[in-house]
Amino acid sequence: MPLLMAFRRYWAIVFFAVLTLPTIGLLTPDLPAPMRTVIAPEARWWTKATERLDPYINNVFGFRGAVLSAHNTYEKWIGGSGSARVISGEGGALFLGENQALEQSIGQLVRPQKVEMAVDLGARLDAEMRRLGGRFVFIIPPNGHTANFDLLPAYARHHKRTPTEYDLVAEGLKTRGVPFVDLRPLIEAGKAGGPVYYILDTHWNQRGALIAFNAAMAAVGRPDLEIAAKDAIGAPRPRLQGDLLRMKGETRSDTPDVLYPPKAPYAGATDGLKPLAGMVKENSARDTGESATGRDPFVSHGFETGHDGPRIMVIGDSFTQHFWDGYLAARASAFLWMHHRLCRFDWEAIQRFKPDILVYAPTERFLPCAGQPGAK
Rank of each mutant, 00 (worst) to 15 (best):
P2T: 02
A12F: 12
V18N: 08
L26A: 05
L27I: 10
P34R: 13
R36V: 03
T37M: 14
W45H: 11
W45Q: 12
E51Y: 08
E51M: 08
G62D: 14
G65W: 12
A66V: 07
S69Q: 15
A70V: 13
N72R: 15
T73L: 14
S81R: 07
S83D: 13
G92K: 04
A93R: 07
L96I: 07
G97L: 11
N99K: 09
L102A: 07
V110P: 01
V110K: 04
R111D: 13
M117W: 04
G122A: 00
M129P: 05
R130L: 12
F138H: 15
P141A: 08
P141G: 11
P153Y: 03
P153T: 06
T162S: 12
Y166L: 14
A170M: 07
P179T: 08
D182I: 06
L186D: 07
G190R: 12
G194H: 02
V196E: 03
V196I: 12
A212S: 13
N214C: 03
A216L: 02
A219E: 12
G221R: 03
D224K: 06
D224R: 02
L240R: 15
Q241V: 09
M247P: 00
T251M: 13
R252I: 09
P261C: 08
K263D: 03
Y266P: 06
K274Y: 00
D287Q: 14
H301N: 09
G302R: 10
H322K: 12
H322W: 08
D325I: 02
A329N: 11
W337R: 15
M338R: 11
H339T: 11
R344Y: 02
D346E: 10
E348I: 07
I350T: 05
R352K: 09
Y360E: 12
P362I: 06
R365F: 05
P368W: 03
A375N: 09
